[in-house]
Design a protein around this nucleic acid. Structure first.
Lengths: 211, 211
DNA sequence: AATTGTGAAATTGTTCACAGCA
DNA sequence: TGCTGTGAACAATTTCACAATT
């Protein structure tokens, strides 16, 4: 039975992990899986797996474990993966183009419907069958195509403007690849994917941050 | 004076954020900055900024704040950004190619020296002046070029093999873009950049994970 | 007067340990 | 017996609040 505790970000992140593991197990035909097995595949404890899942309900059977297919479906529903989402990518540069070609998104139901750029030479061309539109029509197009998620892949200085346009068009989720911190209302969900920062964390470790 | 507390991952992540803010402030010519000003630019508290910095020393002046240039340099040294690192990208597909063209890396001193692929049509060609090498020579080339950090941008099923080769070549830091969980020794630092997972977090929010 | 640096308190997240069930 | 579900204990992280300093 679902609890009413506020679910932590780390729990939701692990839900994604469980989802991936369960998809694999389902393909292999495993009927059930224990919290210990799930934990061993990642670097988690069985108790953590059980606690994470218990926030959303009692999905397992004592003595047996969790039914793979059912649990995968339950998590899909919790994460909103039992449906499709309309995604727009803003910025048809290196990263934007790579994202459009990235097959995983389609597979998970994240459908890239629009690409935007401000370069007249790119506008009108198309990537993987998706035409590149003029970013100056951003808000209108986002609304017209019922875009749920905007991926920002423009240079840093342009990112805040794009975010504001997206918010004004009613978009409630943004994935930001620009290395700047966006100011948007708390009602809009924002994730940052800053690849330089990831390398910096590795660099910290290499210079001795470890021990 | 540096403390001997174990520095948390979140503190190191914020150090990267402070570094970016300070770089901007330095360009603007600001001589000093207070913890309050730093906190306001991101969504942090002044106390957190002060505590984070205090783990590494006393960099500020009471009543005045922190000297921008000095603090930026201190953090650069802590994060290992006062030097360059040799990086190899494995996988010349969409993501790998985008990373090679991504200017931020060069700017931060992460120099992409090698690209690897297993596609004979790509091997021998070059991206941005960096030749694409045959992944079957991975370990040898990594050693020969003193690569510090390996970026894995290959399809999921190939990632674990690449990681093992990298580890066997003495690489101690890996940035993994493949949507799988890599098994590597604890002595090797690993960061995962899983873009589908980020979208899934947004999806969770959109279906009501918020409140 | 302003702002740092930091113990202590509060909060959040993780692990333990065991009752309860198949 | 094996394994879940969970309150309680524990650990980590964040925030508070204030003495110390310029």
């Amino acid at each position: 039975m679902p609890r009413n505790r506020r679910i932590s970000e780390s729990t939701v992140r692990r839900l994604s992990i469980y989802y991936r593991l369960l998809s694999g197990l389902e393909k292999e035909g495993a009927p059930t899986v224990s919290s210990r097995e799930l934990a061993e595949k990642e670097k988690l404890t069985p108790a953590q797996v059980r606690k994470d899942l218990s926030f959303f309900g009692s999905f397992g059977t004592r003595g047996l474990g969790y039914p793979v297919r059912e649990l995968r479906e339950k998590i899909a529903r919790i994460l909103g993966l039992n449906r499709t989402w309309n995604v727009a990518v803003v910025g048809a540069g290196n990263i934007g183009s790579a994202l459009v070609s990235y097959k995983e998104f389609q597979k998970q139901g994240f459908l890239i419907k629009l690409i935007f750029d401000n370069d007249q030479r790119k506008i009108g061309s198309s990537h993987k069958g998706i035409p590149v539109s003029d970013v100056s029509h951003l808000a209108d197009e986002l609304k017209a195509h019922h875009i749920d998620i905007v991926v920002i892949a423009v240079p840093g200085p342009a990112a805040q403007g794009v975010a504001e346009e997206a918010v004004s068009a009613g978009v409630r989720a943004i994935l930001n690849f620009a290395p700047v911190s966006l100011k948007i209302p708390a009602s809009v969900s924002l994730r940052n994917e800053n690849m330089s920062m990831e390398l910096e964390q590795l660099s910290y470790f290499l210079v001795g941050g470890n021990g």
